[in-house]
């Protein structure tokens, strides 16, 4: 035992090896993305951001799927906020004991539920329900707005995708917000009750205290929505169109990759275009994630001081 305890600390080598593994992995990722996407970026240039996608004519404009990705993400933000924060408040503030614990359990369990389950339920069950009970009525009542001007032919469209992506992201967001609410020192809450504030006023105060954490959680959830593949591939409709209408089928970058990668060798440059689009996706998702993690870390420092 003695010899082992006092032997030189060789652990440094393990740490070094480990660092090397991670760095090599990351370098491989960057290398493959750069080498594979270079041909299309060099030969098409700004044409990559064009609006026409036609593999037969060799026109690979990524504007439609890019816009689809952005719209799905932007539209889901208000839904995620409206459905996640009250859910956390319900579990943490209104329900006591077992009921609160159960709601929290449901949140945690749903946060990690395989997205392909959400996707299949969305396709086989919810898209029809949404079409009949939400999208048709919206089109008939508010059809004069460009947002609802087109007729929802199938249940697979931008709005259905947004709703299902939001449902899948709400539990994740709720779990993140809950952790930040639990970090507020008890003395603050007791102090606010002692000056005679209503429960709802204390809740609003607590929410405003964790606002940076909410923004951080929202950035992380948006990154999940942006890069989500199975849900959009199955319920967004996969049409390369640019339209202001939320009831139209759309495609996103991940669904573009899923639908075209299989036969990408048959067309010149297509394979490189798809790598370029996944590079764009990586950059977008990385910025959202990095901003989210940075804000979250700063919030932790502020609370613990």
């Amino acid at each position: 035992m003695g010899a082992r305890v006092f032997s030189a600390d060789k652990f440094v080598y393990l740490v070094g090896l480990n660092l090397a593994i991670l760095v090599v992995l990351f370098a491989l990722v960057v290398y493959v993305l750069a080498v594979k996407s270079a041909p299309s970026i060099l030969s098409l240039g700004a044409g990559l951001l064009g609006s026409v996608w036609n593999t037969d004519e060799g026109r690979y404009g990524l504007l439609a799927p890019l816009l689809g990705s952005v719209l799905v993400t932007v539209y889901s933000i208000p839904l995620i906020i409206v459905f996640s924060i009250p859910l956390v408040v319900l579990a943490e503030e209104y329900l006591r004991g077992l009921a609160g614990k159960l709601v929290n359990l449901v949140i945690d369990m749903s946060a990690g539920l395989p997205t392909v389950i959400y996707a299949y339920i969305g396709l086989a069950f919810m898209s029809n329900v949404l079409k009949d009970w939400l999208e048709r009525p919206l089109h008939e009542l508010l059809g004069f707005l460009p947002l609802f001007a087109c007729r929802p032919l199938t249940g697979q469209n931008l709005m259905t995708a947004t709703v299902i992506l939001s449902i899948s992201a709400v539990p994740y967001m709720a779990a993140l917000v809950r952790e930040s609410l639990r970090m507020i020192p008890k003395s603050y809450v007791e102090a606010s009750y002692s000056i005679g504030l209503y429960k709802e006023e204390v809740i609003l105060m607590k929410l405003s205290m964790v606002r940076p954490a909410i923004v951080s959680a929202l950035l992380l959830s948006s990154s999940r929505v942006l890069t989500e593949t199975t849900i959009v591939s199955l319920v967004a409709g996969n049409q390369y169109v640019i339209t202001p209408c939320a009831l139209s089928p759309v495609s996103t970058i991940p669904s573009l990759i899923v639908n075209n990668f299989g036969y990408s060798v048959m067309y010149p440059l297509l394979d490189s275009v798809l790598f370029a689009s996944s590079l764009i996706l990586f950059v977008l998702s990385l910025s959202l994630n990095a901003a989210g993690l940075y804000l979250n870390k700063r919030f932790r420092v502020v609370v613990s001081e």
Partner: peptide
């Protein structure tokens, strides 16, 4: 930095990278 970048790697991007590697 490396860890954050890997964390932000979209899963569909992982798929195409492992495909070509």
């Amino acid at each position: 930095v490396v860890f954050t970048s890997l964390y932000g790697l979209p899963t569909i991007t992982i798929s195409v990278i492992v495909y070509s590697l």
